[in-house]
Nucleic acid binder design. Structure first.
Lengths: 143, 143
DNA sequence: ACTAGTTGAATAGCATGCTATGCAATGATA
DNA sequence: TATCATTGCATAGCATGCTATTCAACTAGT
């Protein structure tokens, strides 16, 4: 029974995501950021002071993954942790001035990468593409 | 300037690819396979005896990545290396009987995962989706 | 044939992700 | 309130990927 990888949604999704990540990495490396750090900053730029648990929910990664990303971000001076006043187990994650200052150049880099990926698509096709990805994500989350 | 991750092709692609990989992993774990091993087997089932360099080209991963995947596959009894008769630097990678026997159940698992992801899409939408992913891949490879 | 450049792999080092555990702080309940 | 379950994080261990480096084997040009 044939199984052609070029016709497999999973294979294409994997390849596409690696190209996105590599492209973004090239663009944000000069800023001292890595892709997962950028993704985490997106959530914190939107709302500072989230707990690790809230970050996990918003970015859909496992808790252990987020814990490790936060360790590297703290090491790189992007965040600092403050003890949570109401729950001794958790901490709130706060952006440093450095991280706040990276918002514009970093999001600009991400926009440029998205533009490079979708350069060949019309505006309608782009909307369609995003919608299809969302539906695939929803199906997998449901299953 | 706002940058909403849910409207970012890169963010969605990353999330979707992780869900694909996680789903596939669940399905092929009983077979003793990991996602990258499966991807490599896809190429070798199609043509046995490829060199590491040829695998790298067909799967679009870096040489170092493939080298490490092959080490794990050899450890797991999926492949064996034979010295190349014409080039002392390279080896040809050959499937073991075990790996050959995994073809049907493994590709079936991958089909099931693709089906789960695309369950909500019509046949036309699926074709459209694959085409859009290929075009995004092509754009990023070109840029 | 020699030297110089190229090419195929291995290895080191690190970022992301995941599963599985362990632990301490909270909560809920008998 | 003493106990048990839940919850928030940290850590260990491993798979994938990438870049950078190194080395040996092959090629080409002189």
């Amino acid at each position: 029974m044939t199984f052609e990888k070029e016709r497999s949604a999973g294979f294409l999704a994997n390849h596409m995501a690696r190209l996105f990540a590599n492209g973004l990495q090239q663009r944000i490396r000069p800023l001292g950021l890595a892709p997962a750090q950028f993704m985490t900053l997106l959530a914190l730029w939107e709302e500072d002071g989230l707990t690790q648990r809230e970050l996990v929910q918003r970015l859909s990664v496992e808790q252990a993954t987020m814990a490790n990303t936060l360790i590297r971000m703290e090491r790189d001076g992007l965040i600092e942790r403050r003890s949570h006043p109401e729950d001794g187990r958790s901490q709130s994650i706060h952006l440093t001035a450095k991280a706040v200052g990276l918002r514009e150049p970093a999001t600009q880099a991400a926009r440029a990468q998205n533009e490079a990926a979708l350069a060949d698509l019309s505006e309608d096709e782009r909307m369609l593409f995003l919608g299809l990805m969302r539906r695939a994500i929803a199906s997998m989350q449901a299953g």
